[in-house]
Simulated scan of single mutants.
Amino acid sequence: MPSLTSKPVGATGYGLMGLTWRPEPAPKEQAFKAMRTALSKGANFWNGGELYGTPTYNSLHLLNSYFTQYPEDAEKVVLSIKGAFNSQKFMPDSSPANVRRSVDECLRVLDGKKFLDLFECARQDANTPVEATVETLAEYVKAGKLGGISLSEVRAETIRRAAKVHPISAVEVELSLWSTDILDNGVMDTCAELGIPIVAYSPLGRGFLTGQIKSIDDIPEGDFRRHMPRFQPDVFSKNLDLVAELQKFAQAKGCTPAQLALAWVKSFSGKPGRPTVIPIPGATTEERVLENMVDVTLTDRELEEIEKILKKLPVAGGRYAPGHPTET
Rank of each mutant, 00 (worst) to 15 (best):
L60W: 01
T285M: 00
I213K: 09
L260K: 06
Y57G: 02
V289M: 00
K113I: 09
E75N: 11
E305I: 11
S176I: 07
G270M: 02
Y70L: 11
P23S: 08
K266P: 06
D241Q: 14
G222Q: 02
K312E: 00
C106K: 02
S179A: 15
R100A: 02
K145Y: 05
T210E: 00
I216R: 15
I278H: 03
K113A: 06
R101L: 10
D217Y: 11
S3R: 14
G222D: 03
P55I: 00
L116D: 04
T299H: 06
N185Q: 07
G273C: 11
L151C: 06
K41T: 11
F67W: 09
I213S: 04
L209T: 06
S6E: 11
I182L: 08
E327I: 14
D181L: 15
V289L: 04
Q88V: 13
E24L: 13
Y14C: 05
V78W: 09
P25E: 03
T136I: 05
S269Q: 09
D189W: 08
I219C: 04
V9N: 05
P25Y: 00
G83N: 09
K308A: 14
T256E: 05
D104W: 01
A97G: 09
K28N: 08
V296P: 03
V77F: 09
F119E: 00
P229F: 08
G282W: 02
Y201N: 10
G222E: 03
V187D: 00
M1G: 01
E157Q: 15
G13Y: 10
F67Y: 12
K311T: 10
T68Q: 11
G112R: 01
P197Y: 15
L310W: 05
S3L: 07
G148W: 11
V130Q: 07
T136H: 00
T37F: 04
S269E: 10
F231N: 01
S269T: 07
E157L: 12
G148E: 01
K238I: 01
P71C: 06
A263L: 05
P55D: 00
E305L: 05
I280G: 02
G318P: 03
V77Q: 10
K41M: 07
E131K: 14
L4R: 12
A156S: 12
L310E: 07
A143S: 05
K7I: 06
L4P: 00
A163E: 02
